[in-house]
Amino acid sequence: MKRIFVFALFAIGCTLAYSQVNWVRSYDVARAQALTANKFIVMDFWAVWCGPCKKMDSDMWETEKMAAHSDKFIFLKVDVDSNREIAMRYRASTIPKVIIMDASGEALWEEIGYRSASVYMKAFEEFPNEPAPTDQITKLVRETADENTYFSMGAWYQDLVKETENVRLKRGMLNASDNFFKMVQKEASTDALAQEAEFNLILNFAYRGAYKKAMKKVDKMEEAEMKNFIMAYCYKCEGQTEKMKEFMDKITSKDLLAQLD
């Protein structure tokens, strides 16, 4: 995996220019470019025999509308016939398939088949511009990540959810956050860190709108600031002001209280 930094030197020779998007043909080069430029990757699975893929090229990728997003992402074309390992990794058995992912390879949004450019363009337009935590992603790419790296990434994706109203993007980001917090639990060197990861996993249920489920789960946890915050947040979202205030009064963290304003 470390070789992607070497491959990045050949990035210019590995790109193909369509009318509005500069496509990269190498998975490793795309990840290296995304890491260097601090961008997300739009990965398009296709094949030369795929009719809908060709229509997608002419109706979306090659249109002027794509110009607005040409600098926002790194664009990667993956031929499923010559890159079967990558296709299998991302379950691209049906094409076209488009995935938005980070430089570490964490998939955040996907769409299978081509029906309308508006579905894809909406995701591109609403995807947050928040810079990724480069140090943490670098460790993930280089396979040197530790419990703190996983926690930082879980928290970052959790915060990123607040930057978009797109339900599918939120779902993908919360799933990514879950994955990282579960890695924290797996690698945690202390019970306290494992418990903090558990609180954040429960908070993600609340951010999905599963308030009753979140409260039921957190009610079993030991008394803590995060427990009171999650209860207050859920009651706030349910419109139960008095219940919310009951738990807010137990919170001393200004940061947590500010999130309930």
Score class of each variant (00 low, 15 high):
Trp23Arg: 10
Glu165Lys: 06
Lys139Ile: 01
Asp191Asn: 05
Arg91Phe: 10
Pro52Cys: 00
Met215Lys: 02
Val42Trp: 04
Thr241Met: 11
Val184Glu: 00
Glu223Tyr: 07
Arg168Ala: 10
Glu198Tyr: 02
Gln185Asn: 12
Ala176Trp: 02
Ile202Trp: 08
Gly209Asp: 06
Lys213Ala: 11
Phe124Gln: 08
Arg25Ser: 13
Phe180Asn: 05
Glu110Phe: 03
Cys53Ile: 09
Glu246Val: 06
Val98Glu: 11
Glu225Asp: 13
Met1Asp: 12
Asn179Glu: 09
Lys2Leu: 05
Ser82Ile: 08
Glu111Cys: 14
Ala68Asp: 14
Met60Pro: 10
Cys237Met: 15
Ala155Tyr: 01
Asn129Asp: 10
Glu125Gly: 01
Ser58Glu: 14
Leu16Thr: 12
Glu198Met: 11
Met121His: 04
Asp159Glu: 14
Asn129Phe: 01
Tyr235Lys: 02
Phe247Leu: 11
Ile74Asp: 01
Ala92Glu: 07
Ile86Val: 13
Met66Ile: 05
Asn83Gly: 06
Asn22Val: 14
Val78Ile: 15
Phe199Gln: 09
Thr241Pro: 05
Asp135Met: 03
Gly105His: 03
Cys234Ser: 11
Ala232Lys: 02
Arg25Val: 13
Thr190Ser: 14
Val6Trp: 08
Gln20Ser: 15
Leu257Glu: 05
Ala176Ser: 04
Val48Leu: 15
Val29Trp: 00
Ile230Gly: 04
Thr149Phe: 01
Lys139Gln: 10
Ile74Thr: 09
Val80Pro: 02
Lys2Glu: 08
Leu174Trp: 02
Asn228Asp: 14
Glu242Met: 08
Phe205Gly: 03
Cys53Ala: 09
Ala32Val: 04
Phe10Thr: 10
Asp159His: 11
Gly239Phe: 03
Ile41Trp: 05
Asn22Met: 13
Ala103Thr: 06
Leu203Arg: 12
Lys186Asn: 09
Thr164Cys: 06
Lys182Cys: 04
Ala32Leu: 00
Val218Cys: 00
Ser152Pro: 00
Phe151Thr: 04
Ser70Gln: 13
Gly239Lys: 05
Lys55Gly: 06
Glu223Cys: 08
Arg208Pro: 07
Leu76Gly: 00
Thr15Leu: 06
Glu242Arg: 05
Val24Asp: 13
Met101Trp: 00
Leu160Cys: 10
Ala155Leu: 09
Glu130Asn: 15
Ser70His: 08
Phe73Asp: 06
Arg84Trp: 08
Leu260Arg: 11
Ala117Pro: 08
Phe199Pro: 03
Ile137Asp: 00
Val119Cys: 12
Met121Pro: 01
Trp109Lys: 00
Met153His: 00
Leu9Pro: 07
Asn83Glu: 13
Asp71Ala: 12
Glu111Ser: 14
Ala232Arg: 03
Glu225Pro: 02
Tyr211Phe: 04
Thr15Trp: 06
Lys54Asn: 12
Glu126Gln: 15
